[in-house]
Design a binder for these strands. Structure first.
Lengths: 336, 336
DNA sequence: ATGAAAGCGCTAACAA
DNA sequence: TTGTTAGCGCTTTCAT
């Protein structure tokens, strides 16, 4: 049998209450007994059961993280920083990759509720805000990262997507481009819409008619990006630059360009979004709009833990600034 | 208050035992009451507490996954497939990135034990087999993936690293290379040693003196790989090909070569290991030895769940075959 | 400074 | 078919 608090109590010749107190550092215990008990726990390799403890109303010290896909570097990096901050604070992470499938998202949420996780961090795109609203109603702390849940009272941490789109597009217009396509993730995501809105704003500012540009919606993957880019680039009104709403898509564009023997950046400028590991690795290195991933991860975890600890009554909405990272995939247009 | 089994029982006018039975599908219950109870649980949005249930001796339906770093695509991909299989089987994953730091590994293990996870899957490198031996002694199911724990009685799933190293090196010797360096991860990892051993075997077979080649040990990152490659390539006995023991390092080599204006594959052939997402994205696309990541992830999860369910008494050791993926980073040596 | 005992939400005999 | 009840390992008054 696993050793329990009873075993320790017996071995130490004290009551379980006393053991409990030394474990939690509560109540008043003589240094003497404290030391003895600690020693014995050590010797017997005793691990207090957080499941029993949770049953009495304490935390489970577990947070659920809902993301679209762990295999996508952006989310892997977010998960990593969230996890790190959690560890520092004594919380573990249970990973939930939903592939943006509402069905899967709901299954995971049910799971997490049954496990009585202390809180849930959401980074998935399409969420039926219905199901999540339930969480909030049940007083389960919810925090959103990378997105925003319009109708929801929840903490959120995200980048200023509008500004990001603006930064990307105005970098391009500044370089002299007038024919700038955009390849974006699902426009049902507020995030994507904002980035496109920023793009339009920049084009407007430069006196370019945004309505005459390609705006192509795509599933978020290198392969899908490549396919769509191929079409775009083969068209007779092929752009001189493309703004992809994330690095995966941008890489797809790069690959398509290579296939068509277009040299980047000379024949085509490409700019991405996110600044994941990938951006530095493609050839040429990708100019992209960086999300402050580490800061975002750390901050959501901080927010939700405050919530869990009841240290906070009001919901907070944190918006961080994106940063343009200029590498080698953009330059002025060759042909005017 | 959260609704409990008592609330349901009262609302349905039955005992909690009955409710418990319909939840678990145990015992004999009339269809009538079953339906009524189910309906009420539905209405009240009741979620049975797995923490209470776990306290009575049932599973927590949680598995811990120890990996070096979630931000490394190899491990992210492994985690993803493990997670997927877990979901299918009704288990959640708690993520533990150790950065191969024994301290952190131990902290996580303590955490996981306190949470009474049903099992632990290990994919971290340097493990003090001591701490893990403890787990096994406590009858906590342990499975190892990607590695092997020599002294340990645990399930394991890995690729044949020796064969992988051999495949890589003989591809190179077959191309005519006679001067083949290897850039490897920490040789204290059995995995790395095996890959190098396979490499040596292939060189031997080709009549090349392996002892005269560069064998450089490196931390596993693009940057570290780049640095070491730079040194190698600047030396007067610069190789015509390098075998990197993982894709990250291989990419570092590619970057170094570019810096030195060496064209790949013409001036230098590079071969990696793992076949992560990255391999297809670098330029040129990387020839590499593929690990069957999805299969490995699925199989460890299957093994450990069998263990958890007590369906298996003997430990299993599964060794999968690696596969050489030839892309464009290797060719015959220009200068003989 | 320490202990007795009730209770957390559920499961599993055992009774009825 | 359904209900009673004794735990599961721990926390937390409330006494002592």
């Amino acid at each position: 049998m696993k050793t329990t608090i009873y075993d320790i109590a017996k071995a130490a010749g004290v009551s379980i209450a006393t053991v409990s107190k030394v474990i939690n550092g509560t109540g008043r215990i003589s240094t003497e007994t404290r030391e003895r008990v600690n020693e014995i726990m050590q010797e017997m390799d005793y691990q207090p059961s957080v499941v029993a403890s949770a049953l009495t109303g304490k935390s489970t010290f577990t947070i659920g993280l809902l993301i679209p896909d762990l295999a996508n570097p952006l989310y892997a990096e977010i998960a990593r920083t969230v996890e790190d901050r959690g560890r520092e604070l004594g919380f573990n992470l249970v990973m939930c990759s939903t592939d943006n499938k509402p069905r899967r998202e709901n299954d995971y949420i049910t799971f997490l509720r049954q496990k009585r996780v202390d809180g849930i961090i959401i980074s998935t795109g399409i969420s039926d805000e219905e199901g999540i609203g339930n969480l909030v109603r049940q007083k389960i702390p919810v925090a959103v990262v990378t997105r925003e849940m319009a109708s929801l009272e929840a903490d959120s941490v995200k980048v200023d997507d509008f500004l990001g789109g603006y930064l990307a597009a105005s970098h391009l217009t500044g370089l002299g481009h007038r024919h700038i396509a955009v390849l974006t993730e699902d426009l049902s995501l507020a995030t994507s819409r904002e980035r496109v809105r920023g793009y339009r704003y920049a084009l407007n500012e430069a006196g370019i008619d945004a309505d005459k540009q390609f705006v192509v919606e795509s599933v978020s993957s290198v392969e899908a990006g490549r396919k769509h880019a191929l079409e775009m680039l083969r068209s007779d009104r092929s752009p001189t630059a493309v703004f992809a709403s994330n690095d995966l898509l941008a890489i797809g564009v790069v690959q398509a360009a290579k296939e068509l023997r277009l040299s980047i950046p000379w024949d085509l400028s490409v700019i991405g979004f996110d600044n994941t590991l990938l951006a530095g690795i493609v050839d040429p290195p990708l100019t992209t709009v960086a999300q402050p991933i580490a800061a975002m991860g750390r901050q959501v975890m901080d927010l939700i833990i405050q919530e869990v600890r009841g240290e906070k009554k009001t919901k907070r909405r944190i918006v961080l600034k994106p940063e343009l990272i200029v590498r080698q995939s953009t330059t002025f247009p060759r042909k005017v």
